[in-house]
Design a protein around this nucleic acid. Structure first.
Length: 134
DNA sequence: AGTATGACCAACG
DNA sequence: CCGTTGGCCATAC
């Protein structure tokens, strides 16, 4: 099979870290947003917020990842230009009824979604049972 | 194997 | 309040 040569390594390997980033982004519910730092924290690497942004940078166009639901710590559409124009990203979020506090800034207080919470729901109450033990 | 980068974050002035 | 600086971590060349 003619793999795409040098692209095969980066396109297929894609370090598990990036893969986990994509998994979390794909799990962001409509109408909600999360931040790069929050995703990084959910992965156990709170200092790797920049790497999370990089993951989206190399995210394949074919992947239906709602990368428009990822904003920076202040709710600003820092990656807006990646969609061609920040307005495109903003329109997508508005289409999901995401509240804005500024033309290119969402209201995190209302729509911030913590991946950890979503994962807790996915993993089941097993973790909750552990916390009850405390 | 080392250097440069980046859709970040926090600290400073 | 706003611009600037540094650190951070994983990837790309």
């Amino acid at each position: 099979m003619g793999r795409s040569g040098r692209a095969a390594q980066t396109d297929t390997a894609r370090s598990a870290y990036f893969d986990r980033v994509f998994a979390i982004v794909a799990a962001i519910p409509p109408g909600r947003v999360t931040t790069y730092g929050t995703i990084a924290r959910a992965l156990g690497t709170p200092r790797s917020a920049r790497v999370v942004g990089w993951a989206l940078n190399v995210a394949p166009e074919g992947a239906a990842l709602p990368c428009h639901r990822v904003v920076d710590r202040d709710g600003n559409l820092s990656g807006g230009w990646h969609f061609g124009h920040p307005d495109i990203m903003a329109n997508r979020l508005r289409d999901e009824d995401v509240p804005f506090v500024a033309p290119y800034r969402v209201d995190l207080a209302s729509c911030l979604w913590d991946p950890a919470e979503g994962l807790v729901d996915a993993l089941g109450a097993e973790r909750e049972r552990d916390e009850q033990g405390e």
